[in-house]
Design a protein around this nucleic acid. Sequence first.
DNA 1: GTGAAAGCGCTAACAA
DNA 2: TTGTTAGCGCTTTCAC
Lengths: 327, 327
Amino acid sequence: MSSPTIYDVSRLSGVSTATVSRAFSEPDRVREDTRRKVYQAAAVLNYQPSAIARAMARQRTDNLAYIICKKGATILDEFYAGICEGVMRRANSLEYHLVVSTAEDWQRTPQRKQIDGAILAGDAEPDLISELQRQNVRVVLVNHVAPGFDLPCVVADEQDGVLQALTHLVKQGHRSIALLAGRFSSYITSERYNAFVSAMKKLNLSLKETNIAMCDRDIYSATRAAFTLLDRPDRPHAIFAFNDTLAAGVMKAAGRLGLRIPEDVAVVGYDDSTACVLLEPELTSVHVDCRQMGELCMERMTALVEGKTDIPRLTVVPVSLKVRNSS
Amino acid sequence: MSSPTIYDVSRLSGVSTATVSRAFSEPDRVREDTRRKVYQAAAVLNYQPSAIARAMARQRTDNLAYIICKKGATILDEFYAGICEGVMRRANSLEYHLVVSTAEDWQRTPQRKQIDGAILAGDAEPDLISELQRQNVRVVLVNHVAPGFDLPCVVADEQDGVLQALTHLVKQGHRSIALLAGRFSSYITSERYNAFVSAMKKLNLSLKETNIAMCDRDIYSATRAAFTLLDRPDRPHAIFAFNDTLAAGVMKAAGRLGLRIPEDVAVVGYDDSTACVLLEPELTSVHVDCRQMGELCMERMTALVEGKTDIPRLTVVPVSLKVRNSS
DNA sequence: GTGAAAGCGCTAACAA
DNA sequence: TTGTTAGCGCTTTCAC
């Protein structure tokens, strides 16, 4: 009841196993009629080459891993799922299989994995990276950069995203702009925060201490924080939130204070998640093409696998502001 | 520059390859001190067993696939991502690797895949199923049942979910309840629709033709459809939507018509997605524990792999209504 | 263009 | 408890 092998096909078609092998992996190297004989025999036997045996012989698995390096809550949140989708589509069209895992789970098993490369999403720990490198696995980082490692990294243009958001708010006549920052991965948090500070400077806006609030990543925490931002006479005219969930929290707080959006306070979010258009008013947000980020990861990965040497170390994906009714 | 093999460890530690193999896969079967010798040699050489060679010898890959059978738009939407997460966590803790793919991509490559089993999420086509079965791959279905196949299926209790939603609305005093149905997978669409009809009957509510609306899965289509439901003198007092996105559409339509929620019209959604608490008012929704569904899939899968025979054919996961401010 | 044969790195009888 | 050895199913030189 086990599957037919290359030997069965070889026997039935009357050619050697080498030829059968070639017929499947390098069709051009066998004569037309021989190839047909082989395919026919294969069809009769319902033969399909075994990927494991192939991997064994070629010392190459055609498997890649997408490892989510992110603690807490939902593993596959919308953003990482988007990147994953980009990676997966591109990987599949290049005949790779994609193994998905979390950093924790990945490190629990010491066994050498059947993969040629790994794409690490988020806060990749140095240990994981060097471990993978020791195993000869190519590594690409996304939404993170690892100082001290010479690896291809794919990130979104945080600087420009924040700048676009603030520029837009200024154009709408706002000068008193507040920040609602959340605790995300270290890279994103610091990157986005710095981007905010420098964008404010660039736009000649003064940044009041009281116009900066911190919160956790859930909406309740965001609502509370936004409340303290908005419940005062000198409240800001606009709030830039670190992501859309936090922005929704701002909208809630505003609603409870009887403030209209965008008339009394404008709100801008980040990520352009699916929630943006569900909210009322619909949320202005910085759109990040996470699918493209995933695809670019695969571009870098294939370059690595093919042994190319002039691979960009840092790839910055452009972002764009999606203006809606909240600003 | 290639990795050390079991032979290297065998030589350095002075024991046979068989013992090295045992030391790693059945530690109990080698004497304490022998084992230590082996581990030490392995550490020196930085040896890790090759998963491919192992798979080759054992005729078993320890890889499973999660295949998303769903056309269009986002592949990894929140619901399927949730199931995926459950599957992944459980799979990883059982030392399996999880390959994620879509049905289309999967079928594009004829090569026999390196997997022991596949979990098909959504509308699995009969072709795919029989193809996998021919390859000796165990199959489990989730959020779908395939008539004509004798396979373990894991689904949510659609009947009860809808019944709970309607019972709740009736308790709130509503008797004129409308349905906003979307076009989802064939299984979900028909299941949820039938559940609605039978729940209405059970609750002795009359189902007016004009109180049923159909729409696509995007919010704009939902808003339009909800508008026709609500923009008439005999408008329903409550609307049950097929999922949360559609429910958000209802909320938008109500807002434009100046109707208050829940005073003028109550709204209930389905899935209890993250959007529910972002909306204002927060959305009452039927909570489906998709992570648990994923974990149950893995339960069935391991039973299959272990050759158990008394595996439940259908597993129905209980659901619960999360009551919030929209009803 | 095709074939013979030596691996690829591990596991699992079977023997000791 | 440990060792010997024959595979697992394919690829890939190297001949012809």
